[in-house]
Simulated scan of single mutants.
Amino acid sequence: MKIEDSVAVVTGGASGLGEATARRLLDRGARAVVALDVNAERGKDLTAELGDRYRFARTDITDPEEVDAVLADAREIGEIRIVVNAAAIAAPAKLLSRKGPIPLETFDKGIKVNLYGPLHVMRAAVPGMAGNEPREDGERGVIINVSSGAAWEGQIGQVSYSASKAALVGMTLPLSRELAEHGIRVMTIAPGAFDTPMYAQVPPSVKEGLIAQSLFPRRMGHPDEFAMLVEEIVRNPMHNGRTIRLDGGMILSPS
């Protein structure tokens, strides 16, 4: 599907993988990128840098009413053809720590942002997307969810994060089967360790340990390398119903 003149919705679009995706889609001729994020200050800076085709919307994706309102505004720009759900939080906690069992609010927050957030966005986007004018092959849109290597090799303390990311992988095939009749593809990317704000507070020794678990290249991923894969998925209609790991061959250790 062509990126040119398409309207894209990108969650987490003011930092990290989402920001890199927004930049690449704009660079490749998207009519507009509607960036959903909670970081209003960063969104304001990016709007000043990238221009009026970057449409920042301060949005809590755990609130379905907020999401519905933002996507209704996005449809006023044009047909939403691309959705990338990149927003996520780590929500670290063990099931049992020195402080006792995992706080339910910690587990719930990870699930609400990482799983319900993408669901809210898809729920708001798909009805309009299904009504888009079909393009080549009858395609009307593509949805790309962002999982993680933790969906398979979750580390100690990643109970909520791994559960939410594994759920996104599990949703990929049934969603792609369901939406095929509407000309909508569904894909998931599972990145490894990328140099994003999520890792900004991680001690250097931990980063070095992650890098050591990669086969090649022995470094953290660059956000634009993730965005390159987003572009490939959007442009190549044969990508559908699958999860692609993007991690330099990394296999996470228990901790």
Rank of each mutant, 00 (worst) to 15 (best):
D63T: 06
G157K: 02
I61A: 09
V70T: 11
I82D: 12
P92R: 13
I82H: 13
L46G: 02
S160E: 04
R53T: 11
K109W: 06
L50H: 14
A130K: 12
P64D: 11
D108S: 14
V126N: 12
T62D: 04
R123F: 02
W152D: 12
Y116R: 08
Y161C: 07
Q158T: 08
Y161R: 09
P118R: 02
A167F: 12
V169Q: 13
I80N: 12
E139F: 09
K99E: 15
G131Q: 14
E153C: 02
D137E: 07
A125T: 02
I82A: 02
R123T: 13
E139H: 13
D137Q: 01
V142P: 04
S147E: 14
T106C: 00
I80T: 05
R81D: 06
L50C: 05
A166T: 05
K109V: 02
V70R: 15
I143L: 15
T59N: 10
E79Y: 08
T62F: 05
A93T: 07
V70S: 10
A48S: 14
Y54D: 13
R58G: 00
Q158K: 03
G138W: 08
A74K: 02
G154P: 08
L168A: 06
A90C: 01
L104S: 12
G110L: 07
A74C: 05
A69H: 12
Q158E: 15
I143W: 07
E76W: 02
R81L: 05
E49K: 10
G78K: 11
Y116W: 01
A88F: 04
P134A: 10
V142D: 09
E79W: 09
A166L: 03
R53P: 03
G100C: 06
R98N: 10
D137M: 03
T59M: 10
A69M: 05
A74T: 07
F107W: 04
P92H: 10
R81I: 02
K165G: 15
L95I: 15
V169T: 14
G100S: 07
I82P: 09
W152Q: 11
R123Y: 11
E76H: 05
L50A: 12
L119D: 02
A57D: 03
P64I: 04
D63H: 11
I156G: 01
V126H: 13
D108I: 00
V126R: 13
L119F: 15
G51A: 04
A48Q: 14
A124K: 06
R135I: 00
E153S: 12
E133R: 12
R135G: 14
M122K: 01
V142E: 09
D45W: 01
R135N: 00
G154N: 08
L119P: 00
A163S: 15
S148Y: 07
A48I: 01
A74H: 06
S147G: 13
Q155A: 09
N85K: 06
D52L: 00
N145C: 07
Y161Q: 08
A48N: 10
F56P: 02
A74R: 06
M129H: 07
P118M: 03
P134H: 03
D52F: 01
E66N: 10
F56R: 08
R53N: 14
F107R: 00
G154D: 07
V142R: 05
H120E: 08
I82T: 08
